[in-house]
């Protein structure tokens, strides 16, 4: 049986962090993962249920000259409808576009998508190719302490991250992409709406004079965590984007993607889709 002894909905960050300090609080944001997991018994509530949606400053998209900062409680709908993001990081808006349904997008938060640490979390591959970092905060020594770490090192296994129980994810930050930055997102599933990704893929790179640099490729649902596809990246780094480099990238995808068979798809199909998507996004960027 799950017994929640108290429900908290603080307005201030320090109040929330103090409530979390003993590691005995369950964080609730949109609840679109949490409610399902507790309902099915896969997860149990801790003594305190902490609603973080009312915390000042935890919601919002801030685009500065050199940096973008998105509050953890920002909803997927907010991201989908943000005109500034649509120009500087359309890949994120694209992922929001293919996310769940209207109702779920209105509730689902960016922070929740990351902290849920599903290999199929759709906002994660685009953030990985944007080189995003996560900001974690906790209450220690009588004060709010924060640390910033690359998103890439955040995931441990399905549902597990390096975040400590007393830490709250407060924001996602990434450098404003360069003018020649190109990016794409692809997601697959049998339905166009309300679909958990069978495989997802994001590409981000600078493209000038037909050559790729600072290449980042991220994959979802091909391993226990979302991952950076280092082999594909290495094959493409510094190369001209042509039929040969695309073929080489496709051929190397299998070295990064180590999918499994599960109820949604076979390992064969996931591996196949990764190759299809690598080819598709590269061709798309190339302009044919």
């Amino acid at each position: 049986m799950q017994e929640i002894s108290s429900y908290l909905a603080p307005r201030r960050l320090d109040q929330a962090l103090q409530a979390m300090a003993d590691g005995a609080a369950t964080v609730l944001c949109g609840g679109t993962d949490l409610a399902l997991q507790t309902e099915s018994g896969a997860r149990h509530y801790k003594a305190k249920l902490l609603n973080i949606r009312r915390i000042d400053g935890l919601t919002g998209i801030e685009v500065k000259a050199d940096q973008v900062r998105i509050g953890a409680a920002t909803t997927v709908s907010d991201i989908r409808g943000n005109p500034e993001l649509a120009t500087i990081a359309p890949v994120l808006v694209e992922a929001a576009e293919h996310f769940a349904s209207e109702q779920i997008r209105n509730a689902a938060s960016l922070g929740g998508n990351i902290c849920n640490a599903s290999p199929a979390g759709d906002m994660i591959p685009p953030l990985l190719v944007l080189g995003a970092s996560v900001e974690l905060a906790c209450w220690r020594d009588g004060a709010v302490q924060t640390r910033l770490m690359p998103l890439e090192g955040f995931f441990v296994s399905p549902g597990k991250t390096v975040k400590l129980a007393e830490e709250l994810l407060t924001a996602v930050v990434f450098d404003r992409p360069a003018a020649d930055f190109v990016a794409r997102f692809k997601k697959s599933g049998p339905r166009p709406a309300l679909e958990i990704s069978t495989v997802s893929l994001a590409l981000g790179a600078r493209l000038s004079n037909g050559k790729l640099s600072e290449v980042r490729v991220a994959m979802g649902s091909v391993a226990p965590t979302p991952l950076r596809a280092r082999h594909v990246e290495a094959v493409l780094e510094g190369k001209a984007l042509d039929a040969a480099s695309i073929a080489a990238a496709v051929a190397s995808a299998a070295e990064d993607a180590k999918p499994i068979d599960d109820v949604r798809a076979s390992a064969w199909y996931r591996g196949h889709l990764v190759r299809v998507f690598v080819e598709e996004v590269l061709n798309d960027v190339r302009g044919n």
């Binding site: 049998p190 339905r191 166009p192 709406a193 309300l194 958990i196 109820v263 949604r264």
Partner: peptide
Amino acid sequence: LKNPCFRDYKLITAPE
């Protein structure tokens, strides 16, 4: 039964 939920048992939805 491995998919006793609408997430994994896929009905046709309006857009399809």
